[in-house]
């Protein structure tokens, strides 16, 4: 069988480098990469959990109290602690990455990476303070 490139299917099969399934355990940087990618599961869970919180609050005091009781169960606290660790890991790696994605030129000179990352960490503190102030009142 010949494809559009003229190579036979057979010949393509001759060289196919095998990558072991656990390639990401070989180096610390690979492991960090995979852990960062897995933070997506924690982000997804957090959205679902926070929407459930919002729904219980909108439903009324009884629903909200039930939500708090559900959230206080040991396994729920454990899930949320793990999710929190992943989400914080996402935030820190995300802000550290920002200087590579965002290039700010000021008077013809590139703003140093530390400044760009610093602005992001500052914004994180401000956003967290505003949310905490809104929720706690």
């Amino acid at each position: 069988m010949t494809g559009p490139t003229g190579y036979t299917e057979f010949r393509q099969r001759l060289y196919r480098p095998r990558v072991p399934l656990l390639w990401w355990l070989r180096q610390r940087s690979y492991l960090v990469f995979v852990v960062r990618e897995l933070s997506s599961v924690a982000v997804g869970w957090s959205v679902v959990f926070l929407l459930l919180a919002a729904r219980s609050i909108m439903r009324g005091p009884d629903a909200y109290r039930q939500f708090l009781e559900w959230g206080a169960r040991p396994w729920m606290v454990l899930i949320n602690l793990i999710a929190l660790a992943f989400v914080v890991f996402h935030a820190v790696t995300w802000f550290n990455l920002a200087p590579r994605a965002i290039v700010v030129n000021l008077r013809g000179r590139r703003l140093p990476a530390g400044v760009v990352a610093g602005v992001h960490f500052g914004a994180w503190v401000v956003a967290s303070a505003i949310v905490a102030w809104l929720v706690v009142g």
Binding site: V43, S46, V47, F49, L50, A53, I57, G60, P61, Y64, R65, F67, L68, E69, W70, G71, A72, M76, V77, N80, L81, A83, L84, V87, V88, H90, A91, W94, F95, A123, W124, A127, S128, V131, A132, V135, V136, G137
Partner: peptide
């Protein structure tokens, strides 16, 4: 997600269910 989820998870996943903070329902 980086800006907002950590603090929201600290509040609604830990602080409020565990009773560290208890804003009343009407306010929320």
């Amino acid at each position: 997600a980086a800006l907002l989820i950590p603090i929201l998870l600290v509040l609604f996943g830990l602080a409020l269910p565990l009773g560290w903070l208890s804003p009343d329902h009407a306010h929320l």
